[in-house]
């Protein structure tokens, strides 16, 4: 039972992070390799707002989430919109450079010491007992709940709202979307904003659970195989891929060797690339552009 809970928490972390990869890729066809850093920036955002709004943890959380959304929009406005119409490779390289810059800037601004935003917010990470003798931390439960809400919200947005339809339309055929009057820059900015918001949320929750340090970016990188295993252009695939990668990781840590933790996602990724390169729910032609 405890293993199932651990898998659920880890899968939620990966799913919450990798929906950002999927959102940006399916709208703009760009693989954002700065996503881990943007996630970490979201966590540092919470660290900053926790000190700013001492005694008001909910306000601090809301401000940090809003900040993450604004950062995503700003990244598009300041950098990525110039990449529209350029080769995908140029855009991917721009995200790599952005990631390195952000990592350096965060180290300069916040140092390398482990921070504990949970303590700054005045909260405690209580352990909750579950049937079957398993236990889950309060933040772990919040992670699962947040992932459910984020995915539910994203499905409702993409399927049920006009902007969601336009985002799907622009991702599928940007030229036709422009011919139908859809402003591509607005759609792309929105996808960057939402991706950074969800990634930032993941970063905040991980930081609340396990503390905030510069290695957080590694978790962002480990979520990338989950997105690819599911198929880069599918949110359902992101969920499934996260579950596959998290299951493999937890089971191998439990039964083989905990040191395998960092390599398991990439091992699963390689296996998937050999067997089914377009992922569980991805489409074949999409992969040509990766």
């Amino acid at each position: 039972m405890q293993i199932a809970v651990n898998i659920a928490v880890l899968a939620s972390i990966y799913a919450l992070i990798c929906c950002g990869y999927v959102l940006i890729y399916r709208a703009t066809r760009v693989l954002s390799l700065a996503h881990g850093e943007l996630m970490m920036l979201g966590a540092y955002g919470l660290y900053a707002t926790a000190s700013l709004f001492k005694g008001h943890p909910l306000i601090a959380l809301a401000a940090a989430a809003g900040l993450a959304l604004a950062v995503g929009l700003a990244v598009y406005a300041a950098l990525m919109w110039r990449m529209t119409g350029e080769s995908v490779l140029a855009a991917v390289l721009a995200t790599i450079a952005l990631g390195i810059l952000l990592r350096g800037a965060m180290m300069l601004a916040f140092g390398t010491l482990t921070q504990h935003p949970l303590r700054d917010l005045g909260w405690e990470n209580a352990s909750i007992g579950l049937p079957g003798g398993a236990r889950i931390s309060a933040v772990g439960a919040a992670l699962i709940l947040s992932t459910g809400l984020v995915y539910g919200g994203l499905f409702a947005f993409l399927r049920g709202t006009r902007w969601g339809m336009r985002m799907r339309a622009a991702g599928q055929n940007p030229l036709l979307a422009a011919q139908r009057g859809i402003g591509l820059h607005g759609i792309y900015a929105l996808s960057w904003g939402l991706a950074t918001f969800t990634g930032g949320l993941a970063g905040m929750l991980i930081a609340l659970d396990a503390g905030l340090e510069s290695t957080l970016v590694i978790i962002g990188l480990k979520a990338f195989p989950a997105a690819l295993v599911g198929g880069l252009d599918s949110l359902v695939g992101a969920l499934a891929g996260s579950l596959v990668v998290a299951s493999a990781e937890v089971l191998l840590i439990q039964y083989v060797d905990p040191l395998l933790s960092d390599v398991v996602p990439f091992f699963v990724l390689l296996a998937m690339l050999v067997v089914r390169p377009w992922g569980l729910f991805g489409t074949r032609e999409e992969l040509d552009r990766v």
């Binding site: 799907r168 599928q172 030229l175 036709l176 011919q179 009057g181 859809i182």
Partner: peptide, 25 residues
């Protein structure tokens, strides 16, 4: 508004969604 020669519909969207996605003048 242009009706192009090729790639004229959003294939993964339903008929209703194709119409809904359009932005009116």
């Amino acid at each position: 508004a242009l009706v192009p020669e090729r790639n004229k519909v959003f294939e993964n969207l339903s008929v209703a969604e194709n119409l809904d996605a359009a932005v009116p003048r």
